[in-house]
Design a protein around this nucleic acid. Structure first.
Lengths: 229, 229
DNA sequence: ATATAGTGTGTATTTGTTACACTAAGTAGT
DNA sequence: ACTACTTAGTGTAACAAATACACACTATAT
């Protein structure tokens, strides 16, 4: 094993794939690294786990440092433990995906304490990534593809009030395929967890769509932990 | 943080939930611990990850030490990283489930290098477990419940040649519910990945059932990575 | 007034899911 | 040889869900 940085031995880190949905595109937040190794490369936001925090707490902290927000929806999905994944020593990393509503104001102002800058980048156009981060991202996308079929995670990416077309776009971009409008609406409404509001979309130059919101209460009552899209 | 065992700081371990299917029962292999903490308690087999092995390799090694076998089907499913899950220091553990064919000869002869003894125990009748191992087990069972619906893992628990009734029993015991015989057969055969053999069950005191085997080749060709039970 | 762009809706067809019960075949005992 | 026993093996009807598909409506901008 590498002796370069003995303090790295058996270190545990967290990496986060923070997804956002904006203008019909699925994006992730990447940072530009400030330090070797992979200085100036794009990377997933991440950090070492501190002795006094659980891995979940560590992920929360990293997301908080990045965005200034608490209570971001996140879930652990895989641990990457190849011996040589970090060039300076042994670092096992626990990966989380996280989902964020990108309202237009706050979308591009992450704090940048541990990187030169951070930027939302379309998942279709990712630059080369540091370490094994491309692999980590791929597996994360795979996970949300699966989980959007039984967990109501689409609504974590949307504003509180949304149109059915927006929901459909989230499903389409995550699943990577077009869906039929009528069938989609029938299905998503059939779950009985969307509440139609007495309110219409604003600021569009065409017929305004009805707004809905996700009813967590009904969801919990009807499905407990999961539905089946 | 605990200073009792400073070498424990940020250690990473592996724990394995090794499932076996025997006489219609789903069992896991537990060890009786030889050392403090939790001396004499039952626990999941596990060990620290060594500096020169990946987490996957570490899990393989542990399974090999336990059973003498290589190439056991296994998959990582979650990492448990609460600060106080280990009383003597910080140990983050990566959990794997593994699936084993229990043929009658080899079933109860695991090597016991890091435990007093090891024993197959019905998952319905688990004793109290050391650490947070009950939690780790629960989450593992949940995972295979989900994954048996889209991965051909049932066949990992069965001998190479098996009857359809045996397959059904595996599904029933993992999903925790009875299934209709005719509907089950229709469905499992409709996948087109079972090969009917010119051979019957032996040694039974009633009409012998036809034997089948799982055709990995066809499976890969038809489904690539997954089907949908 | 009209062009434009997205909203919102119904039905027929196909496919999959569920519920359900009897006969066939082999073994063991007499 | 017969009988009793135990599991294997099979079909269909009713219902539910998934799919494929097209047009009129409405708000806005010009």
């Amino acid at each position: 094993m590498k002796e370069v940085l003995p303090t790295f031995n058996s270190a545990v880190s967290i990496d986060c794939v923070l997804f956002g949905f904006d203008e019909g595109e699925l994006k992730i937040l990447l940072i530009e690294r400030n330090e070797e190794p992979f200085k100036d490369w794009w990377a997933l936001p991440g950090n070492l786990v501190k002795p006094d925090e659980s891995v979940d707490q560590s992920a929360s902290r990293i997301l908080h440092e990045l965005t200034g927000l608490s209570n971001i929806y996140m879930e652990q999905y895989y641990t990457f433990g190849e011996v040589n994944r970090h060039p300076q020593g042994r670092v096992i990393t626990v990966a989380y995906y996280a989902l964020l509503r990108l309202s237009n104001e706050k979308s591009l102002k992450p704090l940048t304490s541990f990187a030169k800058k951070a930027q939302w980048i379309n998942v279709q156009q990712l630059p080369p990534l540091a370490f094994d981060h491309l692999n980590i991202f791929d597996k994360g996308l795979e996970k949300i593809k699966r989980r959007i079929k039984y967990l109501p995670i689409a609504f974590e990416l949307l504003p509180e009030k949304f149109t059915l077309t927006q929901v459909q776009h989230v499903y389409e971009v995550i699943l990577g395929k077009k869906l039929d409008k009528r069938n989609f609406r029938k299905k998503i409404l059939s779950f009985g967890v969307l509440k139609e509001l007495d309110e219409k979309q604003k600021g569009v130059s065409f017929r305004a769509a009805t707004l809905y919101k996700f009813d967590r209460r009904k969801y919990a009552k009807l499905y407990g932990k999961e539905f089946s899209f």
